[in-house]
Amino acid sequence: MTYKGKETMEFTFDLNTIWFILIGVLLAGYAILDGFDLGVGALHLFVKDDTERRILINSIGPVWDGNEVWLVTGGGALFAAFPHVYATVFSGFYTAFMLLLFGLIFRAVAIDFRSKRPSKKWRQTWDVAFSIASIVIAFLMGVALGNIVTGIPLTPEKEFYGSFFSLLTPYTVLVGLTTVSLFMMHGAIYLVMKTEGSLQDKVRGWVNNTIIFFVICYVTATMATLIYYPHMVDHFKAEPVLFLVAVLNMLAVANIPREIHNGNEFKAFLSSCASIIALLALFAIGLFPNIVYSFPNPENSLTIYNAASSQKTLGIMLTIAIIGIPFVLAYTISIYWIFRGKVKIDSMSY
């Protein structure tokens, strides 16, 4: 029993499907973890005071690098499990991905270099680099995601035939903005957990504003998807129970202001994580079993079958994942536990 098309709602829990889900999990892990780093970066210039800016950077100081590893591992897993997707998307989105790389380089360097010299000009420059890089990274990732929804033109040889500017449509830009707003909301909630005093009061104000920004973007993007890209909702029509994911998403978002109001920052953060997971799940359900939807020739789409590595490799990779994941979770949880609580600046801080 294999998945043939969207009209038949057949679903096989085979290695290809498992890897579709696992890569989704890695990307969700990345979005949840690096999402708040990028959000903190996007909000960085809203505080002016040097100490407050240091607190913002150090709130992600010990963890941002580990968070980025989720992207690196996601990329490696995509290369190994679905080489054609990796090859088609990375070469097809060449210019966009180069800009993304420059963003990632500047962010990493800005975080590390910023506080290494006392000069105000030096710090101001890196602050701007950090913030712009964070916004650009989030935006480009959103644009890439948007293009996967709209579909990109593919040849029968699985090669992309569009241009950098054909990737920027009003819809993909909207998804890019939605991603920026989502990460800003997520980052603001994270900062409420990590700050105290007057800075925390300021940050708490950001949460409400960013929620409003996010909800506006999200609702607009959802309407645009329903109107222009109805293929994304085929599965939801066939299996109405999947609508629960969309409902869960709205509940999670709605729960955030309530928890912030009650002073349960951690629960608010968990709600924000849940909404990111639900969003990506909606996206994945809409896409399955395609990974890259081809438009205008849907028959050239890259699916979890025609883009995959051999069954043997998918099996080996699954063994690697099963051995590795408990360790990864153990490190991640320990680090967050050790560095829990409010940020304190000391001699080893950024």
Partner: peptide, 25 residues
């Protein structure tokens, strides 16, 4: 991809997480 990709993925799972996690400490 079938061969080379596996090694890169293993690098991410076995090396980078270990390195970046403990680097924080």
């Amino acid at each position: 991809g079938d061969v080379f990709g596996s090694a890169l993925a293993a690098e991410g799972i076995f090396a980078f997480f270990l390195e970046s996690g403990f680097l924080a400490i």
